[in-house]
Structure formats: structure tokens, C-alpha cells
Design a protein around this nucleic acid. Structure first.
Lengths: 204, 204
DNA sequence: CATAAAAACGGAATTGACTCAATTTTAGAA
DNA sequence: TTCTAAAATTGAGTCAATTCCGTTTTTATG
């Protein structure tokens, strides 16, 4: 099948992503020209389009790595949640939010979110939707865990609750990245306040 | 001040919006070329950019009309809500959702949402955020009304609850417009299911 | 080792949103 | 009515993403 070709392919993928990530970070997504990414990655413009369908997909590859890290970090909380419903939710959502600006700027998030709704059927659009679902599922898993421990009432609809919590956080995060001045601490406080209503309703 | 000039201005605005709305509906937002809109509206490309900062703002003007209609329709429900918390929420959100595809296709919604996160400081970006806030406020007003009537506990944080309900609905709506196959009835059912948790928590 | 098919590359050409300097139109003062 | 400054229009030009297709590289085969 393939030795050299596969190796070159992987290498070019890596070079393109690295060049793009650096440029996006330094100059912003909009200002980063494909031509510049190509030059930096030492491939041609045409080759980039051989690897990614469009500029958004390049950003998508970077965002996906980020969100997968977040999902990974969340596993620890689900396995070992704080012994209090409010804190458990706050800790998990806190991990999502705090990690979120580690590698990606607000502008990159805005672009990524925009592309995922603009082109929901592009490779990145589908990947982004899958990531959202994975995050929802992780919140649902936390709730199930809390139900098992006996901190959350058993008769609560865990699926619906997970969706509610994720959707609210996600929408708040969207508004957060839209304002360059918005601070993480305020975002978390606002979400805690909203979740307080839920916590009161579901605590055993 | 101005008779002729103001009249011509208003007329051109109208012609541009009408031409754009027709084109967006027929060929989709992406496929609609500014050149074509200009030709149809009998103005030049430059003039369009005199009236709107960018292509997205043209769509924005159309979306704003739609959302304002929805807000208007919602007033009736707030003034005279069904005598049951779950039904009251379902009725108001139902109006939002059912109206939403009256003038705008799913593709137009996707584009509008994408632009509003991509360019949050453009005229449309700001207008869209304001519309979201107005919808949140209307939901909050409904909750306050239900509290006044005695259907919702007085000690509930109405502001936070309104945000929670709006954010969840909005996120569900975003996912809804991302799937061309998604049906309104299913969307409403899913939201009702999610709100059931809240309703149980807040009913007096 | 030669060779033909397949895969990937390169970069010039295309496309469409947006800009800008020149021109035309309008308001209203003389 | 005539004239002038301000306001608005125009469309050719710019810019960057994306496409297209001829050329080069890799693989598989005899």
C-alpha cells in the first residue's frame, strides 16, 4: 500500500496545521492568508486544498484537538465528582470554560462557531456538532453519576437535564466570546446563578 | 431638510431589501451575488455598500423585521398567558419557533447566526444580540407575570430562569436550523421535555 | 529495472465581495 | 433662475479564497 506517500502526507498535514495555528494566533484567522500558510508550511496553495476543503476546516482541525483535550480533562470530574451537586456542575463546566482559551483566542472561537453553523455539513461542521454532543453526553454522565451516588433524585430526566445544562452553558459561552471584554470569572458566576435554579430542583 | 432625497433613499432601501429577500429565498444567501441584487434593485454595487456595510447587513435587515414581528406576537401571550406554567412557556416559545420559518429559510437563519457571531460588532451583529436580549426579556416578563398571578413561586430568580429558558431554546433552534431534515414538531417536543424539569421546580 | 496507472502537487486563472476616485444629483442661497 | 457645496451614485479595480488542470512523484506490475 503505502510507506513514503503516507509519511509525506502525515508530515504535510502536520506542517499545515502548525503553520496555520501559529498564524491564526499571531495575526488572527481573518488576516491569515492561505498563501502565507502555504509558504510557511512549504506546500502550494493547491495542496492545502487537497488536504482541507476550505480555510474553515483548517481551523476546525485545531479546534477539534482543543475540545478533545477538554473532554479528556472532564473525565476526571465525572469519575470523581465533588460531593455537592452545585459544585460538581461548576467544576465540570469550569474545566470546559477555563481550558477553552488555552490555545484558541476568542476570535478563533467566533470563527469556528460561525463556520459550524454556516456549513453544518462540511467535515468541520459535522465534527463540531459531534463535539457538542460529546460534551452534552459527558454532562449527562456526571448527572447519572450523581444520581448513582444519591446526590440527585433518581426520578429526574437525566438526558433532558444534561441538554439543558449544556445548551445554557454553550449559549453563555457564545455570548462570552462575542465580547472581547468579557471575563471568565463573570461568565462562570452567571452560569452558577442560572444553574442554582436547577440544582434546587434536582438535589435529593 | 429633504423631500426628494429622503424619498429616493427610502425607495432605494426598499428596492434593495426586496431584491435581496427574493434572491436569498430563491437561490440562497451564498449563491446570491451583490451584482445581481444591485441589478434587480436598479442601483449600482457601490450604492448597495452605501446603504449596507456588507452582504450580511442586508440579510440582517430582513432578519430584524422577522424577529420584531415575533416579539410583537409574543406580547399577546405575556399579557394573557395560559393558566398553567408549562403551557404558558410552550405557547410563547411556540410562537417564536412557528413564526421563525415564515419569511426566512433555514439557510438564511444559519447565515444570520453565523454572521452575528463572526462579526459581533457590525451593525447586524449588534442588532442580533439586542434581539436575543429582547426575547430573553420577554420570557422574563412572562415569568414575572406568572409570579404575579401566583403560578410561579415568588422566590424564584426570574432573571436567571428567563436566561436559562431562552438559552436552551435558542441552542435547540440553532441545532434545528443546522439540519435541513429537522421538523418543528420534534423541536417543540424536545424543548417541552427539557422545560418540564424547570416547570416542576418553579410551579407554585 | 522499465513503465503505466494513480495520486498528489503547483500555481495560474477564476470568482465574488468590497473599495475608491471620478462623476452626477440635490438643496438651497443669492 | 443660476450657482455652489454637500451628498450620493457609479463601476472599474483590488484582494483573497477557491478551482482547475497540466506536470511531477509514487506505487504497482511485468
Amino acid at each position: 500500500m503505502s510507506g513514503l506517500r503516507a509519511r509525506q502526507k502525515a508530515d504535510r498535514h502536520r506542517r499545515i496545521i502548525e503553520a496555520a495555528a501559529a498564524l491564526f494566533r499571531d495575526t488572527g484567522y481573518e488576516a491569515a492568508k492561505i498563501e502565507t500558510i502555504a509558504a510557511q508550511a512549504e506546500v502550494s496553495v493547491g495542496t492545502i486544498y487537497n488536504y482541507y476543503q476550505n480555510k474553515g476546516d483548517i481551523l476546525g482541525a485545531i479546534v477539534s484537538m482543543e475540545v478533545n483535550e477538554v473532554l479528556n480533562a472532564g473525565r476526571g470530574v465525572v469519575a470523581n465528582p465533588p460531593a455537592n451537586v452545585g459544585d460538581a456542575l461548576d467544576t465540570l463546566l469550569g474545566i470546559y470554560i477555563e481550558h477553552s482559551l488555552h490555545y484558541l483566542s476568542k476570535e478563533m472561537w467566533r470563527q469556528a462557531m460561525a463556520i459550524s453553523t454556516q456549513l453544518p455539513d462540511s467535515p468541520f461542521g459535522q465534527a463540531y456538532t459531534a463535539l457538542d454532543r460529546a460534551l452534552t453526553e459527558q454532562i449527562r454522565a456526571l448527572i447519572a453519576r450523581l444520581q448513582a451516588i444519591g446526590l440527585v433524585r433518581r426520578d429526574i430526566d437525566g438526558q433532558a437535564l444534561g441538554e439543558l445544562v449544556f445548551n445554557n452553558m454553550n449559549m453563555m459561552f457564545i455570548e462570552f466570546v462575542k465580547r472581547d471584554g468579557a471575563r471568565i470569572a463573570e461568565l462562570r458566576a452567571a452560569i452558577r446563578r442560572q444553574n442554582r435554579i436547577l440544582v434546587a430542583a434536582i438535589a435529593a
